[in-house]
Design a protein around this nucleic acid. Structure first.
Lengths: 201, 201, 201, 201
DNA sequence: GATGAATGAGCCTTCATTCAT
DNA sequence: GATGAATGAAGGCTCATTCAT
């Protein structure tokens, strides 16, 4: 452990910077910005100011605003390579696992909302353009399969649960939190437990 | 005195134009534009071109881009003072009514998606601004109560259904329609029928 | 004197309107507008609203904004075909006539200021364009000759007096009235009386 | 330590530009523009083109058109912190000093006219707005006190002289230079010399 | 004659982007 | 690598002007 150092002592190469690392650090601060302002309304200057860098720096790490946004989507998509797995820790019974899943989403409601908003903006941005990159679609599948692994339910049921959670988060966004997170969670819970009883998973 | 005439021949009277009617006609063509481009990316010039009028005309009927958007939200919100009622025609049994409801949403999936997207943009636009106008929130309540009247279920269950439908529509938007509308409808259907059996409505 | 009437009783010509009369009535209300806002900042809509007519009506009486302005200058120029003459009434001694002149300007300071401002805007508007119309220049000569007739002084002295008054009015405009009208008038008075004594008129 | 260098070789340091210096250089070229076109008729594009920069650059140095104009007024006001003093050089007798003063204004008639025009536009611009900034008023006082110091005359007499000069310049502007600068100067000269004889300074 | 709806050029301002330092 | 000055196209909005009624 001793004498290990990542710092380069070469005199003539003063700045040793991991390009990708900096890029990641920048991206991680962009989720809220894009989510709150919207792709079209967010400007490069706003981003630069929020990240405490110059616009020049932004363009050093990203080709364009669109590229930055694309990379952001990729970043947040690969970011949570579904830590749902962690939510499984010490959850033995089906009921416990359902609780863990719900808690997982409830705890990170804000983050999840931002994510969905970004996905929608991204989908819109691509528009009738290039069918190209999967992006959010892939993330959705990851969530879906995480749920399947965790609860051992069918794909379509998992999608239904995911849709319900998505819808719940969005509904709360629109109605300013008037929809009760607790009550709705209970309904989802009841549904899942009911499914298990019927053995229809 | 027997000579009836709907036309006003007043001399010195200028072009007679129903201001509100024209405004409504313009608004009705804006939903798709805002939904597809997003508030921030849609420009007044694009709108003008799409509606086949000049930007000057746009500003003759609306104070600003924001005002136009606000009026659009109000317009689409009051537009469907919930024609869900119509979906009730000749639906006697609970099962039939559930089908009618699902069909209602499936038939107008595109419109409903546009609506939700607009609502989200609107919510974002208001941001930390004035808590003032309810707008979409009110519309959400209308849908909710329509469902309650139609199916005779509890408020929270109605909200759950609405959230599920919302989530489904959005999921299909994001994953490019890979989620099956038919299959998911069946799941919703089963859930509602199950609820009735348990008498837990 | 009896039975004289300017009104036309022809049934099929209901509106008998003296075009020039209306035009004059409109023009008379424009001096303040142009003076306060400035040619470049005053819009046809503002004018229309201030005069309680439509922009269409404005264009019925004037070819363009520039034409309106030009006619305004002509109007105010010919308006006071120098009623200074009136100020001469019952003014016998030189001293009395000087007082009458000063009073004349003091009483209508606002109007005179507006006039000078308009003249300057007009001069600027013509710019390096057509050397064409004399306009304000002509008005200046009229004032000058009025003063000559009233006081019997030389042309260059009359111009000096006019310049002093012009300068006084403008100075008061710029410094917000801090320059005393009374005191300055006394100085002008003293100068003129001194001139007479020397017989250098 | 003996090696002196004015150039900053800091690495990672961007283009070094003296913001205020550039701003001043831009302002100094604006007097004629605003004077010739008028605040309302002069556009930012015209300014940019005349200064050989882009509109973007203009907005990099000034917040708005109004801010630019305000700063221009401040600039030309503080510009000539009354170099009248210089006109005093080697002027011993009262007569010589009067000549120096007149020559001062005659030599820079154009500049002085532009200045007065700007002041009037500025006064108009502020309109019934904020009574706030003195601007031109302050400049007027400076001229006034310069004259007092130079000629040792009373404040009101100095103001009278200033008004006469103002009025003369404006009159020449309006009548296209028909009023003789030489002749009028002589009148002002005579007036001042007459004042001195009477000892009424 | 009078109105005000309609137009599109043009205004002030901002944006994404470049590049000398 | 990092900065921010510079650019000019484009955005929201207004203007002078026209014209059907």
């Amino acid at each position: 452990m001793h004498f290990k150092s990542n710092v380069c002592y070469n005199k003539n190469m003063p700045k040793v910077i991991n390009h990708d690392e900096v890029r990641g650090k920048l991206l991680s601060q962009c989720l809220n910005l894009f989510s709150h302002e919207g792709y079209g309304s967010l400007t490069m200057r706003k981003i630069a100011k929020a990240l405490n860098v110059s616009t020049g720096t932004l363009y050093h790490y990203f080709d364009s605003k669109e590229d930055l946004f694309r990379q952001l989507v990729e970043y947040i998509t690969h970011q949570d390579l579904f830590d749902v797995e962690k939510a499984l820790q010490g959850a033995d019974t089906f009921s416990e696992r359902v609780d863990a899943l719900l808690r997982f989403f409830i705890d990170r409601e804000d983050y999840f909302l931002n994510q969905v908003i970004i996905w929608m903006d991204y989908t819109r941005q691509q528009g009738e353009g290039t069918e190209a990159e999967p992006g959010p679609r892939e993330a959705l599948v990851q969530y879906e399969q995480g749920i399947i692994r965790l609860l051992g339910i069918e794909k379509e049921v998992a999608r239904f649960i995911l849709a319900a959670i998505n819808g719940l988060v969005i509904q709360r966004y629109i109605d300013g939190g008037r929809t009760s997170l607790a009550t709705q969670s209970i309904l989802i819970r009841q549904y899942l437990l009911g499914q298990e009883e019927q053995g229809s998973l």
